[in-house]
């Protein structure tokens, strides 16, 4: 079971949270101008990083706030959490096998 640090509530058990998948997938500025393949890239294609991964969590059974986290997808270790709209605290997004 993961122990997740909500930026507002502190450390809580994983069962209080919902997972939101990959973070920082920006909604297109001008959706009407997008080609089909650009839509496919936005909607479906994922980085699926092996290593430190920026992802979203939702504290559903708590403060009901969304936030971002950096977590290693092999060790499951949380490197940091940060609020929606903020940049990752460490610029480590990328696949670094461990």
């Amino acid at each position: 079971m993961l122990l997740i640090e909500c930026p507002w509530c502190g450390k809580r058990h994983e069962t209080e949270f919902r997972y939101g998948g990959e973070a920082h997938i920006a909604r297109p500025e001008k959706p009407e101008d997008l080609s089909d393949s650009e839509w496919a890239n936005f909607l479906f294609m994922r980085t699926n990083t092996k290593g430190v991964f920026a992802e979203r969590w939702y504290h559903a059974n708590g403060c009901r706030q969304w936030f971002n986290a950096l977590r290693h997808t092999v060790s499951h270790e949380f490197i940091g959490v940060y609020k929606m709209g903020e940049k990752p605290p460490v610029s480590v997004q990328g696949s670094e096998d461990r």
Binding site: G21, M45, R46, T47, N48
Partner: peptide, 18 residues
């Protein structure tokens, strides 16, 4: 499970989450 990792070696993006 490692399909995305391998595909990224050839700059191919897949609609897969592991």
């Amino acid at each position: 499970g490692h399909s995305s990792v391998l595909a990224s070696m050839a700059d191919v993006r897949l609609p897969i989450d592991s």
